[in-house]
Simulated assay, not measured.
Amino acid sequence: MFQGSMVALVTPMRRDGSIDMDALDRLLDWHLSAGTDAIVAVGTTGESATLDFEEHCAVISHVVQRIAGRIPVIAGTGANATREAIHLTQCAKDAGADACLLVTPYYNKPTQQGLFLHYQAVAEAVDVPQILYNVPGRTAVDLLPETVERLASVPNIVGLKEALGRPERTRELVERVGGRIDLYSGDDATALDFLLAGGQGVISVTANVAPAAMHQMCAAARAGDVAQAREINTRLDGLHHALFHEANPIPVKWAVSQMGLMPDGIRLPLTPLSEPFHAAVLDAMRQAGIAVDH
């Protein structure tokens, strides 16, 4: 249903933590011109955990209206309470989002049956395409391939974002559900190999900083031009790693602010990028051919 480079968009904020809608418009226009294939609004990289319900829905609606159907908008609507996930997903549908991305319930550590029932409940409650999102390093729960296989039969579930970053997991998912639902990488460092193994795209943090290059890399991989895809990915490899020197989205928000595209605001309990990591992020940006203000 979706493919290519889908940016896990940061939510621009002023230094006082308020959302900067003007900067959001600048980012969206920039991504459209750079060839980004889809926008993921208010996902976990968009600080969904610190936005209240009204802000969450307002940002989704704003993005949908600004994009105006030119590329797909996927709304982050996951929560660790099933009722809340349903409310957010309904809000995104009402706003006109093309699909929703639902991270596994965090902290609760549900069983595999609990995960199945959670996703089934949201899919049955809201008639909108839904993408599962597995990121065990952040949620403390792993959505196993056998559970994904069960969920692939649930109407409205159309894809999986898998951020484990392990080749053996990718292969098993392709074998179990490839062709039934779409598979997207959620780990920039291994995204190219994921695409070459049968994935349809990447929901990318790096694309916040290098959208054109991520689009080109994905396009080359999907076209079978492995040499070109690897050449582009080599330039981006430093970014893939530098943007995780501290917890996401701390480094990526700092990097985008250095490009002059938005202020450097971030909400507590997250804090701005620590000074010892500034040079590493800037070096990775320059290696990728990105101009910076400093």
Rank of each mutant, 00 (worst) to 15 (best):
D225K: 01
L101F: 14
E84S: 07
E47W: 08
E47N: 06
E124P: 02
G238E: 03
I250K: 03
T82V: 14
F116D: 06
H240G: 01
V202M: 01
V42L: 09
D293T: 15
A58C: 02
A288Y: 07
T77I: 09
R138L: 08
R26M: 05
A121C: 00
H87M: 12
D264E: 14
P167M: 13
G260D: 10
P145T: 14
G46M: 09
L88D: 05
P251G: 04
A58M: 08
P72E: 08
E172V: 04
K109V: 10
V40A: 05
A68I: 07
V64A: 04
E275G: 00
H294F: 10
E47I: 11
A242N: 05
P105R: 05
A280Q: 13
S5F: 03
S185Q: 07
A152T: 10
P167H: 10
R15H: 10
A163R: 12
I203S: 02
A247W: 01
T44A: 11
G4F: 00
A284T: 12
G46S: 10
F244P: 02
M6C: 04
A197V: 01
G159K: 05
E55Q: 14
D187T: 05
V174Q: 08
R235Y: 01
F116I: 14
L101P: 06
F277L: 12
Q130D: 08
A99N: 07
D94A: 14
T111C: 09
V40Q: 04
A189R: 10
I39P: 00
T89Y: 11
T36R: 04
A220P: 00
